[in-house]
Design a protein around this nucleic acid. Structure first.
Lengths: 134, 134
DNA sequence: CAGCATCCCAACAGATACTG
DNA sequence: CAGTATCTGTTGGGATGCTG
């Protein structure tokens, strides 16, 4: 069928695109950074190793589920390492890998940009919002 | 009541934290970058101005709604400018502002990091997944 | 202490159809 | 052409209760 609806064309494009996205390193990384807790965990661990419950306390408001989930995915990606000490009670330490430290440098770059330009963004927003008028 | 459940304590912490997050430039920026379409729009416009429908075609798989939503929020943040030419039919051009170009530089940095390190991430994943055994 | 299994709900992406 | 309005499905985050 040579005739497709706009929706079908978009759908097809979406499929192609998803494949493209999946293979795109930049997008993979952005997906990772986009996670609310990831940057916080990395930032927390940048200062040094921490235990599970320490992280839970340092990163206020995180539920055990999300903390575990975040830590697992970061461990899988080789961003941090997980070390279990089979004492009673058990003790688990998390620590950034060299790759994780490298990532924290990138976060620093993002932070620098944010601090340098966020003011302009705020000004732009105020300008924009003040025209939402009448 | 001096006694709070763990959930209540977390809830309180979450409220405090949300306030903190709201004021944190880095997190604001990450929120922005985290948006799936934002980076694509910025990347598309980095090459030069584009019309609405051109963007819709270039960024495959995006629905009109998401495209508009993304463009509006980026306009509000001063990342891009929107210029309406009241012809018939109407014509709308989008273009990165200097701030937007500055942001695209940051995206380039992210891209560079991704391309340099994504391989390590993939290796880590394979290693991790191969231990998901027994 | 560290973490998993389960349920639940809100938020949001996307499809669709219509308008200036 | 460049959107807007509305509806719906999916996802993801959180609460809760239990285990090694």
């Amino acid at each position: 069928m040579a005739t497709m609806t706009a929706a079908q064309r978009r759908e097809q494009a979406r499929l192609d695109y998803d494949a493209f996205i999946k293979g795109c390193p930049t997008n993979q990384l952005l997906d990772r950074l986009s996670d609310k807790w990831v940057s916080l965990v990395v930032a927390a661990l940048a200062a040094g190793p921490m235990r599970y419950s320490d992280l839970g306390r340092k990163i206020a408001g995180v539920s055990p589920k999300m903390l575990t989930q975040t830590l697992r995915s970061l461990e899988r990606d080789g961003i941090l390492s997980r070390e279990v000490t089979p004492s009673v009670p058990v003790r688990v330490d998390y620590e950034l890998t060299p790759l994780g430290h490298s990532l924290s440098l990138l976060l620093t770059a993002v932070k620098d940009w944010a601090e340098t330009h966020i003011e302009q963004v705020h000004e732009a927003r105020e300008r924009y919002d003040s025209v939402q008028d009448v």
